[in-house]
Nucleic acid binder design. Sequence first.
DNA 1: AGCATATATTTGCCTTGACAAATATACTTG
DNA 2: CAAGTATATTTGTCAAGGCAAATATATGCT
Lengths: 152, 152
Amino acid sequence: MNTESLAFATPQESLGILLGLVRAEIVRAMETELAAKGLNLSFTQFLILKRLARLGPMSASELARSVELDGGAMTRQLDHLEGKGYLRRCRHEQDRRALRIELTDAGNALWTQLVDCNERVLTAAQRSLSEAEQAQLQDYLERVLHALRDKS
Amino acid sequence: MNTESLAFATPQESLGILLGLVRAEIVRAMETELAAKGLNLSFTQFLILKRLARLGPMSASELARSVELDGGAMTRQLDHLEGKGYLRRCRHEQDRRALRIELTDAGNALWTQLVDCNERVLTAAQRSLSEAEQAQLQDYLERVLHALRDKS
DNA sequence: AGCATATATTTGCCTTGACAAATATACTTG
DNA sequence: CAAGTATATTTGTCAAGGCAAATATATGCT
């Protein structure tokens, strides 16, 4: 180039941008890991599977809320994941409006692979932070989140 | 509800999700602030204007890289912002392929309003963190970012 | 100079996610 | 119980962004 106005990188970013950059890198890294295993999953799909694996069966809207995904978008992701055979839409016993989304055996099997990817990426991302610092980072982020949500 | 399986909130989220949640809240808050001032700007557009105001004129692709936005998407955002009269596409003196994007007077005037919104949102977001903690959060995030980028 | 390669911008195509409307149930109150 | 309101899921529509192809320049090498 010429003017050498290095606009890239991260020169004292404001929080909003910085968060976006970090998140984008994590998403990218995760999807790369997944692709390396021959898995064709988006980060969103990974999150959905993670929730189900961690918290067990739940309704589509609970799932949507927990991942901050729109209900409509969730319906379509469920279509994909059900199509791939990783989960099942069952009837909800107490509420006939709702579904009970549960992992299939294939879904559970898949999860064991995903744990791995997840682990590797998070470890790599935080490798320059001590255990204490990692905990602190998490704490700070949670406090920021609460501050934004409770506009008290 | 029934089962009370509180899947919402933020019970020990992994970094990826947490970052997404925080960022989403910041974006939401910023756009709300903007709308409150009668401004119809997306967070992305805000970022573009911010870059130009802070770093001065630069090419479209420098701008795109610095906001982590795809080149094609940038072209379209520039269309919008130029249409609203906030910026101008000029010829780049040294490189006839490139553009020199610069703020118009209206764009600079707008920026003085945006600084305000930006300030308010970031202050609110970090209000439960001390100055020292805010700096530390920034530092941690930058370290994570570097760790992810330099896969050394 | 001639050619191959790299970069800047634009455009077309496609996917994702937000929002709103439609439908089916649930819940709440008079 | 009936009416009104709230919630769950699905579908249509739209805007935003990623990717690839097209075009115009630049740059580097021979």
